[in-house]
Nucleic acid binder design. Structure first.
Ligand code: ZN
Ligand code: ZN
Ligand code: ZN
Ligand code: ZN
Lengths: 162, 162
DNA sequence: AAATAATCGAAACATTATAACATTTCTTTC
DNA sequence: GAAAGAAATGTTATAATGTTTCGATTATTT
């Protein structure tokens, strides 16, 4: 993990979007997963911001873009994208965010800024390992970890002096 | 943390209930928080099992016990109990579970068994510290942590060979 | 007792997610 | 290319979870 967790608020975000979509297409091609136009559209909408987006907010955006969509449309796309490791669900927000490094399976921890609502992904194997280890000491076999840290990002700390 | 995370399936659970209610009463008395009969009833229902319980499941149980309850009845009680540190919300389940050591504020990590649905609370300050520290390295100021580990508890590992 | 604050009752409403089944599109096989 | 099978999508309805509002009641303080 060399990349900074949160990019500056004014970074060139179009690059994030383009890179995420390109990587998604490559991954799906490799896996023979069908990243259909609708699914790609949903992924693109999710990547519009680093702020997680809810299913119904996505639904609205799909409709704004002219698609005749109903809730299942969105939830099916979300399911596909999750199964293929392209997005994560943020449990504490009931919302979805693009995965920052979808190419390899990984444990994730999320930093959720209360001020700007952005989310960044830590990919600390160390944390994941320690969690698994502590669980193991209780005789517990870990299958999946949900780690979400709510707080204030560096930029918001500077701007709002919270 | 000396107590085992998961108690045996066949432990004397009435003791858990009684102890939890007694501790809750003591805490609320000390804090001048009003643990009304309704709130205590909800807490007792939550402690009926080590399995987290959803708001509407609670609502049903309240009605079974003769209370004329509506959703706000439950959610208000849950809010009170959470504010007073007597219960935790398990985000990945949309459900609530009794706090195992409500007397002092503490970070919590939850082990959630996929087989028996029980939840145990780790209270590892070490994990909490490491998470805060890793976040801090990203310039992020932690305010609250959600840590939920899904997997299989020791007893279920033995019984079901998963 | 009166004033104030906290709690509760009740109805409506809002948000998030899934079930069920029909239709279309894509892929494979012949 | 046509037929069969599989995957994806459309459509409607409904389930599950959570909130707002406002008035009535109860508890606490003065
Ligand atoms: Zn970006
Ligand atoms: Zn921020
Ligand atoms: Zn018990
Ligand atoms: Zn278990």
């Amino acid at each position: 993990m060399s990349k900074p967790a949160f990019l500056p608020h004014d970074h060139n975000h179009q690059r994030c979007i383009d890179a995420a979509l390109a990587e998604a297409r490559a991954i799906c091609q490799r896996k023979h997963s069908r990243l259909t136009p609708q699914r790609e559209q949903v992924l693109r909408l999710i990547w519009q911001e680093h702020r997680p987006i809810g299913a119904y907010e996505l639904l609205d955006k799909l409709r704004e873009e002219g698609l005749k969509a109903a809730p299942p449309t969105v939830y099916r796309a979300l399911e596909f994208l999750q199964e293929n490791g392209l997005i994560h669900r943020i449990e504490s927000l009931n919302a979805y965010t693009g995965c920052s490094h979808p190419s390899e399976p990984h444990a994730s921890q999320f930093l959720v800024c209360q001020q700007c609502q952005r989310v960044a992904e830590l990919g600390s194997e160390q944390i994941a390992e320690q969690l698994s280890e502590q669980a193991r000491r209780a005789g517990f076999a870990s299958a999946h970890q949900t780690v979400e840290i709510r707080g204030t990002c560096a930029e918001c700390l500077r701007h709002f002096h919270v």
